[in-house]
Design a protein around this nucleic acid. Structure first.
Length: 739
RNA sequence: GCGCGCUUAGCUCAGUUGGUAGAGCGACCCCUUGACGUGGGGUAGGCCAGGGGUUCGAAUCCCUUAGCGCGCACCA
């Protein structure tokens, strides 16, 4: 640089050539990501060795909610990656030993369903045609392909994940964790096998948990009738075909109409099936609904099953796993329930038993994954007992009575050990726990963690490995995918391997869990359950929920609607920085947001604005200028510093939506529109001292702005940072936070 | 039935101790070869869903009504 070029004689000749063209994300992003990865800064152990910072800093840890290996990433995943990367990069710049662990989820039932469907469509074969081994091989192929696509997408977003620790919910280490957890709970009596009415999905041919059910409002006929002319009580039902399995009539104990009948027993032949009905009194029966009398079907209704337990009623199954009747007259037996219903109603009408038909609004239960109508059936399944008392770790006194898993889950949040953002979700969480029933964890599918229990005759053995001796056969079922996901915060840190876990102990409890609010029960609650039970500590200090990403018409983004805006496509066109900003600005925690291309485009223009700010500063200010600021320039600097102080507080409060907006406004409206404009005459003017002071100011503001924007827009800030003349500078990713 | 959230400019949304309504996009007008694959300046557009209350003062706090969305329960 020589003095002849000073004083507004046009652009200085030494400006890097890249600034002569608009910012081109495609040409720099992949290269920058590779450089970060090679530098080792994604791995906390290879962060810079500085006192109190980097590898010597306070640990910060977070797990990536492992995406399902069913397909590609969508905008919701992009939002998740953007917010979490902001968290990780901010923590790293603040000097923390930041660990963000990547992984993918085998998603058991979801993945098997996708692959089975594909094979059925392309080859016309079912899983039984292929057999267990061949299906596993096919799923393996599918999982490898989708895994690779997903991982490459995460990289394009700029996610600063520690790839050296990547995990899979179904790999060997996680399988050992699952078996270990299962055995601990089994030995404590918290996992048991029981014959109970469960949610059966006839379409998926498996049981599912209560949380995997979706409800859909439909108008249905409510039939009121008598079982026979000899029975003086009428009942109402929407499912007459199930009445072949009735073993009781329940009435409210306070109902004067039926008091005289309580304890009586009636016999009849109903649609060809002999039935025997005991009249019982139960508070669960509402006097006002229907006739006030309820036909109890213990085998095909969870509520009725519970009632049957209270009154010692027999259980009689009349519907099988395929949703077909197993008893009844011609036209009923062997027919699907819908068909059998019509036949039963026709029979009632013919017999003169039908008293009333009316339309009512009612919810039907559907399996979330397959859409199949849930058929409650009695089956021998594995359960986690949430209400059973056990002794807490370290608690030896019997007389205390111990605690329950429900209690542990409640306490984790009510004690403040785990905070939920936004806090309104705490109510939702407590409400769910209140209504929680035992968790059915066995699934009749093949893809997943096999239940670590072996049988020989009447004997059962639960262990990490098969027992010694011949003739032991392992349980055919696999575990609910959320059982393994529940262990994720510590199975990824080496648990149950004591040596490996000890090395990572400082990362648990993890600092924060960022995930979608729809996972509050499935995942968040299960992680709290597993961690508090197995480790005696919460899995994370803070839960940050993001909302749903919708399209401009306020529809949920889904494949079937074909309204997915592909994040990879958007990144290719506008850059990852623009996509990240568009997802984050103005979107508070827990709130749904809308995404459209115009918004992403707007932040591409912002990238370009930053680029040109850099171009202006590099070409007109003296980047080597030193010394104090003039009073006027100091005032500008003070204004900027107070902004930095403000946003630092907001970063700590997880208010990224505000920070992003403020930085955008400052860079454009304040720095570009005001400061740079007023700098033009100063930098072109005759006053050397004013030029010097203004140059120092512009360089300082640029430096602070790049740092503050880095967590949000890592690529462009890092790229500009390369040309900043900062003494002893490091890559921006590990530079010290702006304030 | 219980609970939660939302309702602010044409659109998308901010507005966190109550102090005279904000941004982006869009529309319209003017200017600009400029650091800017454009940018700058300006204009129009809002009884902050309705009603009531607290207060000197309410988009903000309380009560209530309505619409939309969501969770849970019920679902005979």
């Amino acid at each position: 640089m020589n003095d002849a070029n000073r004083g507004g004689q046009g652009p200085r000749p030494d400006i890097p050539e890249k600034y002569l063209k608009p910012f081109d994300p495609a040409s720099v992003e992949a290269r920058l990501y590779e450089a970060w990865e090679k530098s080792g800064y994604f791995d906390p152990d290879t962060l810079p060795d500085e006192p109190g910072r980097g590898r010597n800093g306070q640990p910060f840890s977070m797990v990536l909610p492992p995406p399902n290996v069913t397909g590609v990433l969508h905008m919701g995943s992009a939002l998740m990656l953007a917010v979490e990367d902001i968290m990780a990069r901010y923590a790293r710049m603040k000097g923390r030993k930041a660990l963000w662990i990547p992984g993918t989820d085998h998603a058991a039932i979801a993945t098997q369903a996708v692959v089975e469907k594909k094979i059925q469509k392309e080859e016309g074969k079912s899983r039984h045609d292929l057999g267990r081994d061949e299906l596993m091989r096919r799923i393996g192929e599918h999982v490898t392909a989708t895994h690779d696509a997903i991982v490459s997408q995460m990289r394009t977003m700029g996610a600063s994940l520690d790839w050296s620790r990547e995990a899979f919910t179904l790999d060997d280490k996680r399988d050992l964790a699952v078996r270990t957890a299962f055995k601990r709970m089994y030995d404590d009596g918290l996992i048991y096998r029981g014959y109970r009415v469960v949610n059966w999905d006839p379409k998926g041919q498996t049981t599912i948990s209560d949380d995997e059910i979706e409800y859909e409002a439909r108008t249905t006929k409510l039939y009121t009738f008598r079982y026979s002319k000899d029975i003086p009580i009428s009942i109402s039902t929407t499912r007459p075909e199930t009445k072949l399995g009735d073993t009781a009539i329940a009435v409210n104990p306070d109902d004067e109409r039926y008091k005289a009948f309580v304890g009586a027993e009636f016999k009849a032949v109903f649609a060809g099936e002999p039935i025997s009905l005991k009249v019982v009194a139960d508070r669960a029966v509402e006097k006002e609904f229907g006739t006030g009398a309820l036909g109890v079907t213990p085998a095909h209704s969870v509520i009725d099953w519970e009632m049957s337990q209270r009154h010692g009623l027999p259980l009689k199954q009349v519907i099988n796993e395929y949703g077909k009747m197993t008893v009844g007259m011609d036209g009923v037996k062997d027919k699907k329930t819908a068909e059998a219903r019509e036949a039963v109603v026709a029979w009632l009408r013919a017999e003169g038993l039908l008293e009333k038909e009316e339309d009512i609004e009612h919810n039907i239960s559907l399996a979330q994954r397959t859409g199949g109508v849930i058929e409650p059936l009695p089956k021998l399944q594995w359960f986690v007992a949430v209400n059973k008392a056990f002794k807490k770790q370290g608690e030896r006194t019997e007389e205390k009575g111990g605690t329950t898993l429900k209690g542990l889950m409640k306490e984790a949040v009510s004690s403040g050990a785990t905070k939920i953002i936004p806090d309104r979700f705490e109510k939702v969480y407590f409400n769910w726990i209140e209504n929680l029933r035992d968790w059915c964890i066995s699934r009749q599918i093949w893809y997943g963690h096999r239940i670590p229990v072996w049988y020989k005759g009447d004997e059962a053995f639960c262990g990490l490995e098969a027992p010694e001796g011949d003739g032991w056969v392992q349980d055919e079922d696999t575990l609910d995918t959320w059982f393994s996901s529940g262990l994720w915060t510590f199975s990824t840190l080496g648990w149950p391997d004591e040596k490996e876990f000890a090395k990572n102990r400082a990362y648990h409890p993890t600092t924060v869990l960022e995930t979608g609010s729809d996972l509050i029960f499935f995942w968040v609650a299960r992680m709290i359950l597993m961690s508090t039970y197995l480790l005696g500590e919460v899995p994370f200090r803070t839960v940050y929920f993001h909302g749903l990403v919708r399209d401009t018409k306020n529809r949920k983004i889904s494949k079937s609607l074909g309204n997915n805006i592909d994040p990879v496509d958007m990144i290719a066109r506008y850059g990852a920085d623009a996509v990240r900003m568009s997802l984050v600005v103005g979107v508070g925690p827990g709130n749904d947001s809308k995404i459209d291309e115009a918004k992403i485009k707007a932040y591409k223009l912002f990238s370009n604005k930053l680029w040109n700010i850099a171009r202006f500063v590099f070409s007109t200010a003296d980047m080597k200028a030193e010394g104090p600021l003039s009073a006027a320039d100091q005032a500008v600097m003070d204004g900027f510093r107070s902004l930095l102080a403000e946003i630092t507080v907001e970063m700590d409060e997880y208010k990224y939506y505000l920070v992003a907006e403020k930085l955008y406004a400052y860079a454009w409206r304040e720095l570009a529109d005001k400061v740079l404009e007023e700098s033009k005459p100063i930098l072109a003017g005759p006053d050397a001292e004013a030029r010097r002071s203004r140059s120092v100011l512009l360089r300082s503001v640029m430096e602070g702005l790049l740092k503050a924007l880095h967590p949000f827009m890592p690529f462009i800030t890092e790229e500009i940072w390369k040309d900043m003349p900062v003494p002893g500078k490091k890559p921006l990713i590990v530079e010290k936070w702006a304030i």
